[in-house]
Write a protein that binds this DNA or RNA. Structure first.
Lengths: 108, 108
DNA sequence: TGGTTATTTGGCAATATAGCCAAAGATAAA
DNA sequence: TTTATCTTTGGCTATATTGCCAAATAACCA
């Protein structure tokens, strides 16, 4: 096992942190189906454009999404399809976790 | 696709957030090999016991680890082995991301 | 019981994050 | 150039997170 202070864990954490927000998960999910410009995503999400833009910039920084400018629009694409496996996997974690919590509640 | 305000994304994000810290990734990695008590993890990590305990409690809350008390020790175990697939997957994301960044630097 | 070790919890300060508004940049059309 | 649209950035406040110390709790042993 690598040492804690090695960069491995920090880099891992950075990727996970980038994905660890409901809005950003929604964005990754949407981009997994097709590219979208900021204005489309803004409408789907229903937040301020600047807020959505900042989420996108965060995802771009983590290398998860990429951009393509066309006219005045900026289209975002999912660069790492593996991120979707991530989500599938996290669903399993989530469901196992929920099942456990339900069991715990019933025990009371 | 589900709506943004559905609980799906929030629950996903909660799991990811729980994993999104270098120390907690280290812990999950370590517990993937064998159970450990708090004192062992504390020594490996080199932080205050209370800090490690709080990280563990956070992971427990997310349903990722479980505990077994033996004597005065509390042994933590990885409850969701899928979390390790997570890490493998995130490694791919990370490596793809790094490769991209290196490419970007060379372009300058 | 009292003492010892292991763990958790409360409290605090430093730092990071999220989301809004307003302003600045960028691009295209008139 | 002016205008309009799309996007990003700066600034701000509210909130959350992290990590340490100190104190409380738990379990065992003498």
């Amino acid at each position: 096992m690598e040492k804690l202070d090695s960069s491995k864990y920090a880099l891992h954490a950075k990727i996970l942190k980038a994905l660890a927000h409901p809005t950003r998960l929604f964005i990754v999910d949407a981009l997994g189906k097709k590219e979208h410009c900021v204005c489309e995503l803004t409408q789907m999400i229903g937040a301020d454009t600047s807020t959505v833009s900042k989420h996108l910039s965060l995802l771009k920084n983590a290398g998860i999404v990429g951009i393509e400018k066309r006219g005045t629009n900026v289209y975002y694409t999912l660069k790492i399809p593996c991120a979707l496996n991530f989500l599938r996997c996290s669903r399993e974690v989530m469901e196992a976790s929920l099942a456990e919590q339900i069991k715990a509640i019933r025990k009371q």
